[in-house]
Simulated scan of single mutants.
Amino acid sequence: AQKFPFIKRDNIKIIPLAVCMFALIGAISVWFPEILGNGKAGNQLTFGGLTDWQHSLELTAVKWLVVLMALAAGAYGGLITPSMMLGSTIAFAAAAAWNTFFPAMSSESAAVVGAAVFLGVSLKMPLTAIVFVLELTYAPVALLMPLCAGMAGAVCVAKKMGFK
């Protein structure tokens, strides 16, 4: 996201790019209305278990594309809720895969943990992300240990991979 926008915001050439990008986002939203806005709709679907793993993966790919398109068009603003949506949709689908081979776990709880971990690592705010997601979702305190373990593992992996 640091490489966006391609054209500086004060350059008049960004206007046709923005019109094209947002028109394309609008066209995509006909099939995926959950991608519009900041990501709250996708989080609600995964936190509530109101979707399936296939749609969750589709939302991950489409939301990622749409966020990058909006940034390329010169939009700026918060990345907190879109980051949470990406994490929750990935974790929701991963939990479904886990449940196929291993003892079942709650896909909804996995989505909450995934949202916090993705948010914490991507925006470099691991402790804040845990507290933020717990408060935002009213998740039970029983999720504190999975949240801390997941965050610790993700932060270690990110450091090993060279993400600063």
Rank of each mutant, 00 (worst) to 15 (best):
F47S: 00
A18N: 03
F118Q: 06
T46V: 08
E58R: 02
V112G: 02
G48A: 05
E135S: 13
F92K: 06
F102M: 14
F132E: 09
E135D: 14
I25F: 04
K3I: 14
N11I: 05
S56K: 01
L57R: 02
P33R: 04
V117N: 07
F22M: 13
S83G: 14
W31I: 06
A72D: 10
C156T: 15
D10T: 15
L24M: 09
G74A: 01
V121A: 04
L136A: 15
L147G: 05
I80E: 14
A97D: 06
V30I: 11
M161V: 12
F101C: 11
L68G: 02
V131C: 07
L86F: 13
A23Y: 12
M85W: 05
I28L: 15
V131H: 12
W53P: 03
V67T: 12
P146L: 09
L127G: 14
T100R: 09
T81K: 14
M85C: 13
P146A: 07
A152V: 12
M105P: 03
A154H: 08
K124F: 05
V113Q: 09
A129K: 06
V121S: 03
L79W: 08
F22V: 15
M69I: 02
L136V: 09
Q2I: 10
F118G: 04
M105W: 05
G74Y: 01
H55G: 00
L36D: 04
L45K: 00
I7A: 02
M85R: 07
P146F: 05
G153H: 14
F102Y: 10
I25L: 14
A96P: 01
M145A: 15
F132H: 14
E135C: 11
A73C: 00
A116S: 13
G39C: 10
K13F: 13
G87Q: 03
T100D: 09
P126W: 11
A41M: 12
S106T: 07
L45W: 00
I35V: 15
F132R: 11
F47N: 03
L123E: 11
P5F: 01
A149F: 15
V112R: 02
L57P: 03
I130D: 03
V117Y: 06
G39S: 10
L57G: 04
G74V: 03
L147E: 07
A75M: 10
W64Y: 13
A61M: 09
A142S: 15
I35P: 07
I12T: 13
T137F: 09
K3G: 10
I130H: 01
P5N: 03
A61E: 01
A158Q: 00
S122R: 08
G150F: 07
A27K: 05
L24Y: 04
N38R: 10
G78V: 12
T81C: 07
K124L: 04
G150R: 11
A115W: 06
F118C: 12
P16Q: 04
F163N: 08
T51A: 00
K13Q: 12
E135T: 13
A94K: 10
P5W: 02
V133A: 07
V131G: 08
I12S: 14
L57D: 09
D10C: 10
I15S: 08
M161G: 06
T137I: 13
A139C: 05
L136H: 13
L119M: 11
M85K: 06
G48D: 04
L36K: 05
G87C: 02
I90H: 07
V30Y: 12
G42M: 09
Q44E: 15
G114R: 08
C148G: 08
